[in-house]
Write a protein that binds this DNA or RNA. Sequence first.
DNA 1: TCAAAACCTTGCGTAGTGTGCAACCTTTGC
DNA 2: GCAAAGGTTGCACACTACGCAAGGTTTTGA
Lengths: 195, 195
Amino acid sequence: MTLSLRQRRRQETARDIQKSTLELAVTHDLDTVTTEEIATAAGISTRTFFNYYTNKEAAAVGHPPSFRDEELEALRSGTGVLATDLKLFLDTHMQTLAGDEAILRMVGKVLRSNEKARGILDGFLMSERHALTDCLNTRAGSRQTAAALASYATDAIGRAIFLWEHADNMSLQEALDNVWGGVIDASRLLIEPSR
Amino acid sequence: MTLSLRQRRRQETARDIQKSTLELAVTHDLDTVTTEEIATAAGISTRTFFNYYTNKEAAAVGHPPSFRDEELEALRSGTGVLATDLKLFLDTHMQTLAGDEAILRMVGKVLRSNEKARGILDGFLMSERHALTDCLNTRAGSRQTAAALASYATDAIGRAIFLWEHADNMSLQEALDNVWGGVIDASRLLIEPSR
DNA sequence: TCAAAACCTTGCGTAGTGTGCAACCTTTGC
DNA sequence: GCAAAGGTTGCACACTACGCAAGGTTTTGA
């Protein structure tokens, strides 16, 4: 469990680089910031920067938290109402994300203006969605159904973060509740035509 | 309606560049292809390449068809069952996409291996989803509901294309029907806990 | 405890990217 | 038919990303 000195330093440096990148990106716009400026701000050489991240956009995105295995397992083997279990799963993940609101807000800003950063995050989210699809596949009727549910869920997190960023005085949890209400309403609209 | 010689040439050149880019990307992997190779293949100078596209990933993605105004309007003012109207809307858009299956297939391949290209397409899809949200907002109860429906719909197109690319002997329309079934089942699962 | 192995940082060299600028050519509109 | 508008190109330049090799630090295990 305890990381060696080397591993700890590596994590710290990676995080320092991300912080330096985001701070510069938020004040100046990532495209006009050079890797040299980032490296200097993080107290390393340009060459070392590229030993940690393949490019500045990847440095800005960093390493977002994945769905945790325990949570996926709890969802897979859950016996409650699916909508409730899935919402609980998202709540837990949102709490993890809420652990670093400052970074989340800066990353959000970068994502809104930088295509390459979006692509990098999108790749990450794609594999997360895949893991969630596998997990839901044991509870849904078919793989297509599981894939749709997984999309609903990951999209909901994205919209919740967006809502939280743009609304004043709203917690991440409140934003997710709000968005989830929309998901349920949308589902109802799709299968209950008359009302 | 008729385009001037200049405008027609511009479109043709843009398309030639996209085709050259995709053909090289499919055989060699876009990352190892240089802009110089693309420019030579398209019969233009490197400098001109950058007058058309800001980078090779944008050249590979090209300019995908947007939702058409008539279709959006038909959906906005539709009076049928929402699920049916929305499915019809997607069917129509899928027919537009089916007009160039060769390019669609090559773009799909690039998107699977190239983060930057994904980010570019994602930015495009984001604005499409926004337009669709505005449109659905007149029929859904709230903006969050409309946003959820718009996500369901655009994601369904993406998954349908993915399915079509990976299944043998399946048309785009069949793939969309298949995926849409998953969307409806997922919605039902979310609001009908016991069954 | 200490030397070898493993790993990390850094400078240097190099191929490739993306843009401003100026010269020159083609199309358009009057 | 000619001026204006728009397009293509070469050139120069700053920035990106990575291979390589030299030199330093941490880890390992005898």
